[in-house]
Design a protein around this nucleic acid. Structure first.
Lengths: 175, 175
DNA sequence: TGGATATGATTCGTATCCGAAAGAATAAGG
DNA sequence: CCTTATTCTTTCGGATACGAATCATATCCA
């Protein structure tokens, strides 16, 4: 975070941290990795929000949810939340927003009436067909400072972290 | 996202995307990198929120703000927001929360009364002294599936993406 | 079959989160 | 000086964000 791009320089920050933590054993390598992971995700979300997504007045999460439903029409709510990486309660609110903008629809399962299926409206579908290629273009732009091999290595490392944390996630009661 | 851990597999997802975009070329490598970056940041935030941070009833953002002010006592609001990677308006709310919990203080600059300096209370300082080593321990745990070289490579790649996007970020009017 | 149990989605309360607008103070330029 | 512009923070409105509680439906099993 601080030592990435901010007002204070990398050297300043690391020195200050070490000063503040003298006597404590700190793993600075791991810290730098997690801090930059957080920072990078923030930059990506902000960049996409201010470029491709702004033109369609979509938030990052709104786009992700739209994308999930676009790829998997009729997906059930709990699966959509899992795929989008948000809680069911958050998804519920986002779907409400998307319904209000006529981009998405709820459909109650006729057999098991507890289940709710999600699908895009024609308008939502048209938006994604137009938007996704531009979104993907920005994805390519975002990783363009890395060569193909480094991009794949990055993906591998990120997947390893996700798998590791998912496997060790303390179970949360419910959402 | 979808192809990381979810209900559907990578192969399924890619085929579906291709079907939806017949004729258009999609850069799946870049897409996987960005999607996993987003997913990893989510996992990390969730994992830390449910382990070390839960014990002190802190949100991820709350911790980051506390950390920034801990490292840079007396930091001005706009710089703290920049360092924490959030907008000034968001920071304002978080500081209000932290003030209410007696962890942080505002101090108006006596010379330039527009400026507000932030600093931890003694209680906030004690919390960070106790919390940060445990937080750092979890950081090391999070990246433990990677060897030291891969962690540094990951950090390098993430920094490159951040620098690239920051350099190309469309200026936002104000926050 | 009918009460207990389980499963799904939504609602509720509270805390982020952002951009735009407002509010407060300083700086600039005649 | 004193208007105007600039800088800095906060407030406001609306959308995300989560966990807990609630509501609705389905399943279990005696």
């Amino acid at each position: 975070m601080v030592w990435v791009t901010g007002f204070y320089t990398l050297a300043e920050t690391e020195k200050t941290i070490e000063g503040r933590l003298s006597g404590l054993e700190i793993d600075f390598t791991s810290q730098a990795a997690i801090a930059n992971l957080y920072r990078a995700a923030n930059s990506v979300r902000k960049y996409f929000s201010n470029t491709v997504l702004r033109s369609n007045d979509l938030s990052w999460t709104g786009f992700v949810v739209l994308w999930v439903v676009w790829i998997w029409p009729g997906i059930e709510v709990r699966h959509a939340a899992e795929e989008a990486g948000i809680s069911k309660s958050t998804l519920s609110g986002v779907v409400r927003t998307m319904e209000g903008r006529s981009l998405m629809r709820r459909r109650i399962d006729p057999v098991d009436r507890r289940l709710v299926h999600l699908e895009l409206t024609d308008e939502g579908d048209r938006m994604m067909v137009d938007l996704f290629p531009r979104f993907n273009g920005e994805e390519a732009f975002a990783v363009s400072p890395l060569n193909a091999k480094k991009v794949q290595e990055l993906t591998r490392s990120l997947k390893a972290i996700v798998a590791h944390l998912e496997a060790n996630m303390p179970e949360s009661t419910g959402d």
